[in-house]
Simulated assay, not measured.
Amino acid sequence: MSPIVAVCPEHGPFAVRGIVVRSTARLKISGSSTNCSTCGAHSPIMDGEYSIDSHGIATALSAPQWSLDALRAIQEPVQRAAAAVADAAVAEPDALREVQRMLNEIKVQNDALSSRLDEALRGKRRWTIGLVLTALATALGAAVDGSTVVAAAPDIARAFLEALEHLQQP
């Protein structure tokens, strides 16, 4: 999953597909665009400089403010769902409805993340869901609160996705 994103004027941020690097590289993007993966609208790709490792994972070395805004767009639904799941006074069906609402809201911004979260959380116990959502909310907060440099956000996302992989194991 690449942190290189484009922003559709209608649907918001989405992951750019089609950038293929066969070995480690440093990539600078400026003034580029692509088409929205949902509606086909002209969408600017986030300007910035990226380091791409031998596995094709891109890490942002520099990026504009609107990349942080894309993270903020999913931060609130994650925090809300994490709070509902952690609150013992919230009935299980209500907590799970809040998780589904979060997934639907995230899907608008990042379909891939929504799908991965849905896969990882489906069928898990409430406390496991709570731990994962709390970790994600914490990571998002660290990436967007101004105390963490932008380059750390992809590292946080990669660590979180690795944690999701562990959830998939029996």
Rank of each mutant, 00 (worst) to 15 (best):
A112S: 14
T128V: 14
T134A: 14
A82K: 05
S115D: 14
I19P: 01
L113Y: 08
S67W: 07
C36Q: 06
R97P: 02
V7C: 13
D69A: 08
G146R: 03
A135K: 06
L68M: 09
W66P: 03
D47H: 05
L121P: 05
F14M: 14
D53L: 09
E105M: 15
P9D: 11
L113A: 14
C39D: 11
Q169G: 09
G123E: 05
V7Y: 15
R158V: 01
P93T: 11
A82T: 04
C8T: 10
A60H: 04
E49M: 02
A73S: 11
L103W: 03
N110S: 15
K28N: 02
R26C: 00
P154F: 01
E98F: 01
G40E: 09
A88T: 02
L140D: 04
L71K: 02
A137R: 01
P93W: 12
D87H: 10
S51C: 00
I106F: 10
T134H: 12
L164R: 08
D145M: 06
T59Y: 11
Q75K: 12
Q65C: 01
A91C: 05
W66T: 06
A112V: 12
L164H: 09
E49G: 03
I19Q: 01
S37I: 09
I106E: 02
A159K: 11
P170T: 05
V90R: 00
E49P: 00
D118K: 15
Q109K: 13
A60F: 00
Q79T: 14
T148L: 02
Q75R: 15
V99R: 14
F160M: 05
S51V: 00
D53S: 08
E162L: 14
W127I: 07
T134K: 15
R116E: 13
H55P: 03
D87V: 06
A88G: 10
E165R: 11
S114P: 09
G31K: 12
R125T: 01
E165L: 11
P9N: 12
E162Q: 14
D87L: 04
L68A: 10
V7L: 13
I52G: 03
